[in-house]
Design a binder for these strands. Structure first.
Lengths: 108, 108
DNA sequence: TGAGATATGTCTAAAAAGAGACATATTGTA
DNA sequence: TACAATATGTCTCTTTTTAGACATATCTCA
């Protein structure tokens, strides 16, 4: 019965936390959009539209959470994203507030 | 600096998890809409529009996560909501999938 | 050479979510 | 008695999000 909800819930969590997940991934190492997409798809099992991801990356950069630099590899261009100090503060804030909110309710 | 993000993040979490929070509240005891509203506002500190909550309660009932019964108290009518077995399965599924997704990334 | 994967980007139409008003009635308190 | 709080409900306009196409180019492997 729980399995009935599974797909729906995983999709929901992935959507709600896409920016957070992206920032988290980038705390491990700088990465380009396509790799971020593949990584998230691999860990969550949810297909991610690149038409959603690229605009998100732009938005995160505009907010100052990410910075990017273009990398040439032969004729292939990659836009490498690095998380900023502000970006790290955001995920830290998100994590602690989430924990705080959850502990106010009593969840096992 | 973290404080800068606080309001935005709390609001975001409250919105994303409004249905889950509502279901959780109702695992403690049956409750009517207005009380749910006040409880959530008290624990989160975020104002909740009743124009958002009442339609949500209807939707949760239609999905079979809640059932309701009207209670008369003098001239005052309250619609008491009780969580169903299916509703409990949903929050259990949500909780375990969230934990699972979080542990796939490595978060302290 | 052709197909599939890698790589990035935009745009539009449709769907969903949001704010906030309109609407009404009771209860408690100053 | 008047005001604030309790209580429930709908509706519309606006904003945001989403799906999915349009667009282009390279790289790898059969």
């Amino acid at each position: 019965m729980t399995e009935q909800f599974r797909k729906e819930i995983v999709q929901r969590i992935t959507r709600n936390l896409l920016d957070i997940q992206t920032l988290r991934l980038l705390t491990a190492e700088p990465m380009w959009g396509y790799k971020i997409k593949k990584q998230i798809e691999a860990t969550t099992g949810v297909k991610l539209r690149h038409g959603a991801l690229y605009p998100l990356l732009n938005a995160l950069e505009q907010k100052g959470f990410l910075k990017s630099q273009k990398q040439q590899q032969g004729g292939r261009t990659r836009k490498i994203y690095t998380i900023t100090e502000k970006g790290m503060e955001y995920i830290d804030a998100y994590n602690s507030i989430l924990k705080e909110q959850i502990s106010k309710q009593n969840i096992k």
